[in-house]
Design a protein around this nucleic acid. Structure first.
Length: 860
RNA sequence: GGGCGGUUAGCUCAGCUGGUAGAGCGCCUGCCUUACAAGCAGGAGGUCGCCUGUUCGAGUCAGGCACCGCCCACCA
């Protein structure tokens, strides 16, 4: 490692791996399971898929959680970030199946046991990837205590919950219309379905009336499902069909008699106002069928082909082929009376991308209303709080209209249902049933079922482990809006049911980061940005106008940038913000170099304010601490990040370090101690957001022990109103003089002398003189110019290269500006209504402004 | 159809309980001032989507309108 003196730029690629190693070997991230959950702080990570690698959403979310965890660790709380991965049923199974397909094999060929072994092997090989990436980001998870949702203990918790809910009567088996995904050959839940707009053909088909006179015309986009029609429905108030209700029609191609029934669901104004009822293949028809006790016929089987319930000539065709064949026959018979394009939303599987085939099948369901009630109450009563609060209504709205949950999935990878059958019997239990002839249900549970138990099952429930006592309930759940239903609501329900407590008291819903062009970040669209490429350098994806490579921004820059981007609304990814984060790390690094290379070896951090600027920076540090920690605790990460940035740039570096440079050069002990104190506290303040660079600098502090990551914050530095006033005045004066210099045409190095005709600069006139580059004289005759500063003026006696024309232009402009403002203030004060009704303080402020502006104008 | 959010500087975004608009990037000018040129100093740039209203005073509050996101529920 090069000497500090030569490390003029902060190099994250060199520093971060080294710092990470020190953290990991310290044991700091693995708190002892002591104390109570109230004393301690914990967050359960939304367990990433084992198949996954870190994407931008993870990086963002994990940065937020890490900032919270590190912040609370610094407050002296035992902080545990509960870590683990999710087996992610469909996603994982699909990946392994693809791999098998590439080898020319398949899961069917392997058989269930061998396939499951294969997935475990695959997981052992690739499952650790995302954990390594979390470390790279600096996430201070408890890596010594990693869970997997298929671990034996976890699996037992899952089965126990299933059995308990079954025994309560919430879980049941039923024939029901489900979303069948022909791609994964499994039922999936409503939440795993995306509606996509497509253009279908709407066919108008005549169904001859059984009476022999005339026909009733129906409209459909799925002609093949007519083979499963069991009725025709019309709206009871539809006069056109009133006399037909109760009659029958004959289903073409099949010959079945279809009753004509009346049902409110049918819209008279759509199509012909007559609906073919197909309870076996349409959700609404299914409901109509239940209301009218109609038969359910399934002509499409789970492989997407026509079943034996259809006339023989259609059997075995795919649904699409059958549609063509059906239409062709109907045409031959002259029954297709009209064809039109029809644009509508159609469900597709999020997983396989295939069009959902609604099918009636035998599945396990869970009734949700009993569990929903307490979960609603928990949010209503604000025992569980959403941030931002508007998300609570999204949650409540869903729970209040909750529907049964299809639990079973026709997959091999997951928690297999603890259900056995023997002839007509069904057995449900954690342990297999005694006796011979039992066969276990082949289905597995929806992955979200096990995810719902995460906060407590990850801590060892149902065992009453020390971890559960110490860290459950957790403090906050951090996640995105899109899984409020899939996950958040279900965790609350399960937590309340099985532990009697909500699994967290706060839910922070963060923004979703979109691609720079405003589209969703997604691999398939090519809009994804790999956070690893930002940290370590890598190609810019095509969504960026600018091509080439990302520089290796490092983890801190990425983290700061993501936090600064965060918002209550969705945000476009901004590389500039990451760049700004890098600037900040470099700035802090160099500020530290200035201090560390300037202090003596025996200097120690201690606040020893000897002059007013010392009191000022301590007071500003106090405020920055309040601001940053307050913002973090209010889940306002963007403001936390920006407040930190402003403090470091605008207060510490631009002013304080510049102010004390001469004293540092002179080797003054007080300022050395104070600088080290301020640096240490600044590092501590910044650490939750930019942990690597702060930890690296901390190691250089003379006398520093241990790790910054494990340091508990000390007392707050004192606030000092007077120092803030005096320095504030001085800073403004320096800026005013600099502005004047620039606009009066002076060269950068031009010498200026002047007389200060304003009170309040007694303690800072040296600073004013040096930073504004003005030699202050006690007198010296007539002024060539006058610069207004607070409480008076700086009378400029002489200035090299002074351009009277430029100065008078500047003066004129200034006068104009003041006069404009003055006019406004005067008008306001002349308004009786304002003086009478506005609060006294506001009126007073306007009067003060009037006096100040008048004085300034006079000075000109 | 219902819900949530948005519309502020060229770009990306801040603006708390109403008191004459801010940041970063970009742009312009000047500086290699021995921590940092990935830097420093200074500057230009906005009738805050539109219309009404409340108010002494409205990006800020209320109502309406227009666009733009996202979520939920959807008519074959």
């Amino acid at each position: 490692m090069a000497a500090l003196k030569d490390r003029t730029r902060y190099d994250p690629s060199e520093v971060e791996p080294r710092v990470l190693e020190r953290w990991l070997s310290s044991g700091l991230f693995h708190p002892a399971p002591d104390g109570t959950a109230t004393e301690n702080y914990s967050i359960a990570i939304p367990p990433p898929n084992v198949t996954g690698s870190l994407h931008m959403g993870h990086a963002f979310q994990d940065t937020i959680m890490d900032a919270l965890i590190r912040r609370h660790r610094a407050r002296g709380r035992r902080a545990k970030w509960i870590l683990g991965t999710d087996h992610a049923g469909i996603a994982t199974q699909t990946q392994v199946e693809q791999m098998l397909a590439a080898e020319g094999s398949s899961r069917e060929r392997l058989g269930r046991e061998a396939f499951e072994r294969r997935v475990w092997e695959w997981r052992a090989q690739y499952g650790g990837k995302i954990i390594g990436q979390l470390k790279r980001l600096g996430a201070s998870c408890d890596y010594h205590d990693e869970r997997f949702t298929l671990d034996p203990a976890y699996a037992e918790a899952v089965l126990k919950v299933f059995v308990a809910l079954y025994e309560k009567g919430y879980i049941y088996r039923d024939r029901y219309l489900v979303n069948w995904d022909p791609g994964s050959r499994s039922a999936i839940s409503d939440l795993e379905v995306d509606d996509i707009e497509v253009t279908d053909t709407l066919y108008y088909i005549d169904y001859p009336l059984a009476s022999g006179s005339g026909a009733i015309t129906v409209a459909t986009v799925r002609p093949e499902t007519m083979l499963a029609d069991v009725a025709i429905a019309v709206n009871p108030s539809d006069a056109r069909y009133e006399r037909l209700v109760g009659e029958s029609a004959i289903l073409p191609l099949v010959g079945r008699r279809l009753q004509i029934i009346a049902d409110e669901h049918v819209r008279p104004d759509f199509g012909t106002g007559a609906l073919k009822v197909t309870p076996g293949h349409d959700p609404h028809d299914f409901e109509i069928g239940r209301r009218h006790r109609l038969e359910q016929i399934s002509v499409i089987w789970e492989d997407g082909r026509i079943s034996e319930a259809a006339p023989e000539r259609f059997r075995g065709l795919t649904a699409a082929e059958a549609a063509q064949a059906v239409v062709a026959e109907l045409r031959d018979q002259g029954l297709v009376t009209r064809i039109e394009d029809y644009r509508h939303a159609v469900p597709f599987s999020q997983r396989s991308g295939e069009r959902i085939e609604p099918l009636v099948s035998l599945q396990w369901f869970m009734r949700m209303d009993e569990l929903a009630a307490p979960a609603i109450e928990a949010v209503r009563s604000r025992r569980v709080r959403f941030h931002p609060a508007s998300n609570a209504s999204v949650y409540l709205n869903w729970l209040e209209n909750i529907r049964p949950w299809v639990l079973s999935r026709q997959l091999w990878w997951g928690h297999r249902l603890p259900v056995w059958y023997r002839r007509g019997e069904t057995y449900v239990g954690v342990e297999p049933p005694a006796g011979r002839g039992w066969e276990r249900d082949p289905d597995v549970l929806d992955t979200w079922f096990s995810s719902a138990l995460w906060p407590f099952a990850a801590l060892g429930w149902p065992e009453q482990t020390p971890e559960l006592r110490a860290f459950y309930p957790t403090d906050v759940l951090v996640t995105a809006r899109d899984i409020i239903f899939l996950w958040v609501a279900r965790m609350v329900m399960m937590g309340l049911e099985f532990t009697g407590e909500a699994p967290f008291s706060d839910v922070h819903i963060h923004a979703i980061i979109q691609a720079p062009d405003g589209r969703r970040m997604s691999k398939s669209l090519g809009t994804g940005i790999d956070p690893m490429d930002l940290m370590e350098g890598g190609p810019r994806p095509p969504v960026f106008e600018q091509g080439g490579e990302f520089p290796a921004y490092g983890a801190d820059a990425l983290r700061w940038g993501l936090l600064a981007m965060s918002s209550t609304q969705d945000v476009k990814f901004s590389e500039e913000k990451i760049g700004q984060g890098r600037q900040l790390t470099n700035k802090l690094w160099n500020a530290a170099r200035l201090i560390l290379l300037g202090v003596g070896a025996e200097a120690r951090a201690e606040a020893r304010p000897a002059r007013i600027e010392d009191r000022w920076i301590l007071s500003r540090l106090h405020r920055a601490r309040e601001e940053v920690s307050g913002r973090l605790e209010g889940y306002d990460f963007a403001h936390a990040a920006l407040a930190l940035y402003d403090y470091i740039y605008a207060e510490l570096c631009d002013w304080y370090l510049e102010l004390v440079k001469p004293r540092l050069r002179d080797g003054e002990p007080e300022v050395q101690a104070t600088l080290l104190y301020v640096l240490t506290e600044t590092l501590a303040l910044a650490h939750p957001l930019i942990p690597f660079v702060t930890e690296e600098i901390y190691a250089y502090l003379p006398g520093a022990e241990g790790l910054l990551a494990g340091r508990v914050e000390g007392a707050r530095p004192p606030q000092d109103e007077e120092a803030e006033r005096v320095l504030g005045r001085t800073i403004e004066a320096v800026q005013a003089i600099r502005r004047w210099r620039d606009q009066a045409g002076l060269k950068a190095g031009a010498r200026v002398s002047g007389r200060l005709e304003a009170p309040g600069f007694e303690q800072t006139s040296e600073h004013l003189s040096r930073l504004a580059r003005v030699a202050l004289v006690d007198d010296g005759g007539a002024a060539v110019a006058s610069v207004p500063i607070e409480g008076g003026t700086l009378e400029v006696i002489s200035a090299d290269g002074f351009d009277p024309a430029a100065a008078s232009r500047k003066r004129a402009a200034e006068r104009e500006r003041i006069e404009r403002e003055l006019a406004r203030v005067r008008a306001k004060l002349a308004n009786d209504a304002f003086v009478e009704k506005a609060p006294a303080a506001v009126v007073e402020a306007e009067r003060g402004k009037l006096a100040r502006l008048t004085a300034e104008l006079e000075a000109l």
